[in-house]
């Protein structure tokens, strides 16, 4: 819809409404970041003022005295491996479902599709017993297995959509050129859906990185905690030191926010991928 005569009352109202909302969305995040540079004293005496200096004392406390760096590492490992495995096996399955006619194709598709509707959180008890039996409780591998399994249906769903849109003549052409099925997949088809893989990757990486429910149940020892979960224990320890708490939150939020601001288009496309047909 094109912009119409600007300057009329309605347009002003729209800008005020949008601007006000933007302020409400942004201000708390800015306050969180600013407060992380303040001492406790400053926070109490001049909560809305700019920090006196941008000193990094609070961040130094976190870096030197807490396990937060370790949490970061754990989250990176869990998210990285889960998303990698997920994309590889999810794309393989989606490729089979979308590019080949075979008996049971519909059954397999329905199997993946029904996975979309199962809230795994409600099966946490059997899952706990199962992982305990496999020795995967309090183990990052356990989390990786859960995240991979949980995110597979959506990944297969998204990738199937993209793979279906590729023309079958490309495949035929490669077949005429003598390429094997594996080669067709790896050299011809997959390179064409890398944008889709980025979207599916973001779609899954963000919730996995942010999740704290599963670590809450499956991870106990401090050295295995993820960042989202680690924040809870960190909050217990430093409950009176506001500056450090804000610094911890800012640190936890920073990496994903930076990536988001650089790649906002892809992020928005990725995170809404499941909800937009």
């Amino acid at each position: 819809m094109s912009q119409k005569k600007s300057g009329d009352f309605g347009t002003w109202l729209m800008h005020i409404f949008l601007g006000f909302n933007a302020l409400i969305m942004l201000y708390p995040i800015i306050m969180m970041a600013l407060s992380s540079f303040k001492t406790n004293n400053e926070i109490f005496s001049a909560p809305f003022a700019l920090p006196k200096s941008f000193n990094l004392d609070n961040f130094a406390v976190i870096w030197n005295e807490t396990d937060v760096p370790r949490y970061f590492l754990n989250s990176t490992i869990v998210t990285g491996i889960s998303v990698f495995v997920l994309l590889v096996i999810g794309t393989m399955a989606a490729y089979a479902v979308s590019r080949y006619k075979f008996r049971g194709n519909i059954m397999v598709s329905l199997f993946f599709l029904s996975g979309l509707m199962l809230p795994l959180r409600l099966a946490i008890i059997p899952l706990f017993i199962q992982l305990k039996a496999l020795g995967l409780v309090d183990n990052l591998i356990g989390l990786i297995c859960i995240y991979t399994a949980m995110s597979l249906p959506a990944t297969v769903f998204i990738m199937t959509g993209f793979l279906r849109s590729l023309p079958s003549e490309l495949e035929d052409s490669a077949r005429m050129d003598g390429a094997s099925e594996l080669r067709i997949m790896v050299q011809i088809m997959v390179p064409l859906i890398t944008p889709a893989m980025v979207i599916a990757g973001i779609y899954n990486a963000v919730p996995i990185w942010n999740d704290f429910f599963f670590p809450l149940i499956f991870i106990q020892s401090p050295e295995s905690r993820t960042i989202a979960q680690g924040l809870t224990s960190f909050f217990g320890e430093y409950s009176v030191n506001y500056g450090v708490l804000y610094a911890g939150l800012t640190m936890a939020a920073l990496p994903i926010m930076v990536i988001f601001i650089i790649q906002s288009k892809r992020f928005i496309a990725g995170m809404t991928a499941g909800a937009i047909k």
Partner: peptide, 12 residues
């Protein structure tokens, strides 16, 4: 801006 909080963890 509207999407910014969406990407942050509920914990944060």
């Amino acid at each position: 801006v509207f999407f910014l909080p969406v990407i942050l963890s509920t914990v944060i």
